[in-house]
């Protein structure tokens, strides 16, 4: 039996300005790419008002759609849609290489460094070392770290913003998938395990009904290097990566893979919003 899914994802972002914005320059990182466990049948980004689009691949391997608006405009809408087929990933077990296999790993040095959103304070650094000491290898320790964060930090939409860092989320013991992932990434790096932040989409139901258009969401999870390969894991749900996950970008943290960033000249935006719709087709 084919365990794979086919999904259509529509990611809509809009800004309504308090008057007219004169010019605007933006980059969208919303297009998934074909890779190990997902293949992309179609991915496109559309802009309203119409703009000339320029696509490139950035340092982190994300597909970037850049565009600029030179005419005065009162609103901006970005619609990214994708048709993706996904497969489940291999089960994640605590077995694996020992800590020694991680030593002198210059190759992934970039994923060992703290970044603004993943830096740890003293308490968390001590915690990371404690977890490391209690486990034989990086794989087991990583799973323990995910478990710890999941049990300690309550998933609470709206409790944080995109600028929130790991320490803040830990102290308030609540956050969203982004914060939980930053925390786990920070802890993993704290114990010397190279770790990536992954942004993407997730269908809300593990056994999504076929043909039903549901409200989905942007999602974030983590990947770590255990000495022989990268392991993906969703610490918010405490589960491995499933067919309902679609990866879009990987980086050191959110700042490397923001879905939409840009600058404009004009009045502040009075109203803005994001909506993700997902339909499982198969």
């Amino acid at each position: 039996m084919n365990q794979g899914w086919r999904m259509r994802i529509t990611h809509r972002t809009w800004f309504q300005y308090d008057g007219k914005a004169a010019t605007s320059y933006n980059e969208a990182r919303m297009s998934p790419r074909s890779e190990g466990r997902q293949s992309v049948l179609d991915a496109r980004v559309e802009i309203q008002p119409a703009a000339w689009l320029y696509k490139y691949e950035d340092y982190w391997g994300s597909v970037v759609t850049a565009f600029d608006l030179q005419e005065a405009h009162e609103s901006l809408t970005v619609v990214a849609s994708a048709l993706v087929e996904t497969m489940p990933s291999a089960p994640v077990t605590p077995d694996g290489p020992s800590w020694n296999d991680l030593e002198n790993e210059d190759r992934w040095h970039e994923y060992l460094l703290p970044t603004p959103r993943t830096a740890l304070d003293e308490e968390l650094t001590a915690l990371a070392l404690e977890i490391k000491g209690a486990h034989d290898g990086p794989q087991a320790a990583a799973l323990a770290a995910c478990e710890l964060v999941q049990s300690e930090v309550e998933y609470q939409p709206g409790s944080t913003g995109v600028q929130t860092d790991a320490v803040h989320a830990w102290r308030q013991r609540s956050g969203v998938c982004q914060d939980i992932s930053h925390l786990v990434v920070g802890l993993l790096r704290g114990m010397g395990t190279p770790a990536k932040y992954v942004s993407g989409y997730m269908h809300p139901h593990p056994d999504g009904p076929v043909g039903e258009d549901v409200a989905g969401q942007s999602h974030a999870w983590v990947e770590w290097w255990s000495g022989t390969g990268w392991t993906g894991y969703d610490p918010t749900n405490g589960a491995p990566i499933q067919p309902r996950h679609v990866a879009v970008g990987r980086g050191r943290e959110y700042g490397d893979v923001p879905p939409l960033k840009g600058v404009y000249s004009g009045p502040p935006s009075a109203n803005q919003g994001v909506e993700v719709r997902i339909t499982r087709l198969r």
Binding site: F15, A22, T23, V263, G266
Partner: peptide, 16 residues
């Protein structure tokens, strides 16, 4: 000024 020197002021950017 309007005909020949337009738009020579620096722009302040807001983050979207």
């Amino acid at each position: 000024t309007g005909r020949y020197f337009r738009a020579t002021a620096a722009v302040t950017w807001a983050v979207a």
